Structures are given as C-alpha cells and as structure tokens.
Simulated scan of single mutants.
Amino acid sequence: MHRQLKLDFRTIQSELAAKPFISSSEFLGPVEDVFKTKEHGYRRIDQATFLHILNFEACQTYSLAMTRPDLVCIQLTIAGTYSRNMGDHCAFVDRNTVQITNYPSSASYTAAGTRLRGIMIVCERQHLLSHFGLRTEHIAPTHRPIFTSRMGAPHTLDLPMSRASLLIADQILSCRYGEPLRGVFMSAKGLELVCGIVSQINAMPAGRAPRIVGASSKLAAIGTAAEIYRREPHNPPTIAQLAQRVGLNRNDLTDGFKKAFGLTPHAYGHMARMEEAERLLRTGEISISEVARRIGYDGYSSFSRAYHAHFGRAPSSRHGT
C-alpha cells in the first residue's frame, strides 16, 4: 500500500503570483504522514520561477504524478534516490546529480524510509532562454527539445554537480533565517543557482552531451565539505551531519579528505577553526574571549589550550600583531 499524490506545477505557479510561499498541504491535503520535515512547499523566486526544497524522510511509500506544461525543472539531488517515469522512459534519480527536464508529465516512486536532500527549481521555458540567456545552438540534438519545445523530451539532461552549485544548495538547505529574511535569502540563492547552471550549460562543448564522472562529483562534494567547515567554525557539523549535507557516506568523506588534504574531516575542521582564530587575533579588533566565542569555544581557557596545542604558543602572542 502506498500514497498516491498529484501536482500541477502551473497551478502552483499561479498561486505563487499572489503570495511568496505555499505549503504542499494546500495542494495535496495533509502530508504529515508522508513527509517528515519542517517545511514542504514551494517558494516564489520571481514571477516565472519557483523553488522547492527536498529535505525530508519519506514516512511511507508514495507515488507522485506531476504535470509541468512548458516548464523546465532543474533538480539537484544531494542525497537519496527514487525512480521516475517519463513516457516509456524509466530512470533512477540518484545522488550528486543535476537533472533537467520539461517533459509535460512524469510519475515518481519513492520508497518508505528514503531520505532526500536537494533543491528543485521550476522555470518557464521561455524565461530561461530570454531572461537568463540560455543558449541552445550547441546543445546535443537529443537534449535540445528540453529548451526549444513545449513537449520537451522523455529523458533528462544530466549535468555533473559542480562545487559551486552544491555549496549554494547547501546554503539554501541550511538557512536558519526566519521570515521575511528567509524568503529574500531563498530568492537570491535560487537565482544564483540558476545563473550557475545556465553558465554550465552554455559552456558545454558544442553538440556533445556532458559526461557525468563520479570522481569529479565526489571531488566537488569534498570541496564543498571543506568550505562548510571554513564557513561554520562557530558550530562545525559532526562527520555524520557533514556527510549527509554533501551526499557522501562517512567512508567516502573520510577517504576524500585524506586524499585531498592529508587529514581526517575532524582534523581539517579543527585546523579551519584555528586558522580563523589566528586571523581574528591578528586584527586585534576584538578580545581573545570574543575570538574564542566566535569559533565555538565556551570560554577562554578551553580555547587557549586548543590554540596552544595547535600552534605551540599562547593566543595572546598573536593578538593585534
């Protein structure tokens, strides 16, 4: 037994013209028994574009029938997998991929217990061409109808997940702002994400489909994980949390850090915190206790011990130098 759901993206877009965010329950009815999440809905980016955050666990198996007349769907999947049918074509949506389609209808099937993490952006096809400047003349003929035809193609254009796109997606998924800042932030990052993907498409070799290389996607994930450590020294994620955020398992994350940096993720995260502390100390603009607080230490003593163990000197020796 599974839940059957239906969505019409044109209806969602029409409703978003009047308000910035719509909960999925307004279209699907109560969904608390299907999606275990804090937010499941659709957010306006501009009048022709909206965004959906995939950050939930499927509480039960469900199928989702979607109609998207003349709308292009761009989906970045960081973690989790499910199957999708478009016409006679069936494929798996897998982690660390970017898939683009505008086929008028599709049906997906997600098993209970699946944890999905990613971003979906829906944009009017003509808006993608005229407003964002997506060029189609060099796209392979098999994929060109996705952008040049209302009927699209019964398959997706698959792109490698770039480090830049993965980092923006993580920023969206990790956003802790309340409204109205949350809406402003989501819109800005959604536009940035579309710009990056259009640039990626425009830079593809003429007439050739892009190659999806697993190693390069993993390298992008490792780079994003390192950037997360540097961006969040005040509250570094655990290895399990970091692995989930970039779509890798713990072993791949640890092996990737050792190959890229010669350090475990934990050691790299500690190094990033100490380097940020060193930068703040050198400015001399804030107290050592405030430096400790900004990189996540409860007090001066614990920070001083960690700093001395890392650099072999007291933090006071670098304050204001």
Results as ranks from 00 to 15, higher is better:
P141I: 04
Q200N: 00
F261R: 13
H138T: 10
R231E: 03
S63Y: 04
D255E: 13
Y297N: 06
L5C: 11
F27Q: 03
L7I: 11
T114C: 13
G223K: 12
S316A: 14
T136W: 07
T37H: 01
K36G: 05
R318W: 03
E227C: 07
V34D: 04
P69C: 13
Y109R: 14
A220C: 08
S108T: 15
T81E: 15
R231V: 02
H131V: 15
S108E: 14
C195P: 00
T97K: 06
A58D: 05
Y177K: 08
S199Y: 00
G133E: 09
G29L: 02
F257W: 06
I168L: 08
A226C: 04
A292H: 02
L16G: 09
L64Q: 11
L263N: 01
G214Y: 00
T238A: 06
S24T: 11
V184H: 07
L64H: 09
S23G: 13
K38Q: 12
D33F: 02
G207M: 03
V291R: 05
T156Y: 05
S83V: 10
G299D: 14
A243E: 01
Y300L: 13
H234W: 07
G190T: 00
A140H: 00
M120D: 05
T148W: 03
H138E: 09
S108M: 14
G284P: 05
G41W: 06
V194I: 09
E39L: 08
N249Y: 07
P233S: 07
I168Y: 03
A209K: 12
R230D: 02
P30H: 04
H138D: 10
